[in-house]
Amino acid sequence: MNIFRFAGDMTHLASVLVLLLKIHTIKSCAGVSLKTQELYAIVFATRYLDIFTDFISLYNTFMKLVFLGSSFSIVWYMRSHKIVRRSYDKDQDTFRHYFLIVPCLLLAMIINEKFTFREVLWTFSLFLEAVAILPQLVLLQRTRNIDNLTGQYIFLLGAYRAFYIFNWIYRYFTEPHYVHWIPWIAGLLQTLLYGDFFYYYFHSWKNNKKLQLPA
């Protein structure tokens, strides 16, 4: 464990807690893409298949349970909670996320470190996570402006993967034979996808005006 990875995990934890608290307290999910939340639930379900078979550390197991629990809770809130579901804008959240799942699965069948069930699904979860934010960013473009909490959620989500890139650089230089191109490339692509959002988020924060994304 290194400071970059720990900072990344805490930022990631903060992002899901910000979203869960927002939905739980104001009982609204306006501006949140259910498609992105469903993709994240799939990402965690396929990445943490080894949660009960390979014990790495209490921290690792605890965080996996938190990420699984929070992502499925958010999906449950947005789909089934009688009040929250009313604020879900399904007419705007129309990104065909199955068009993301199939290519990621096919790619994971081709590019992986070991062709086993668990390794292919783990690789699939990395590719899917890289593009999971797309429905949310498309929804933001459509609804034009976003409330602070959703903006913070996306900012933290992008920042966590940026921290992980520093973690991979650190591990590359400190651990011999630590070379994993698949998570590195997927993680870099993921962070780049947040690029324009970061740009507008930073400028709105600097000029202290409401975050408006260009059409």
Partner: peptide, 10 residues
């Protein structure tokens, strides 16, 4: 080992 395969990360 798990660490080798990079699976020790979240």
């Amino acid at each position: 080992t798990k660490a080798h395969l990079g699976h020790d990360e979240l």
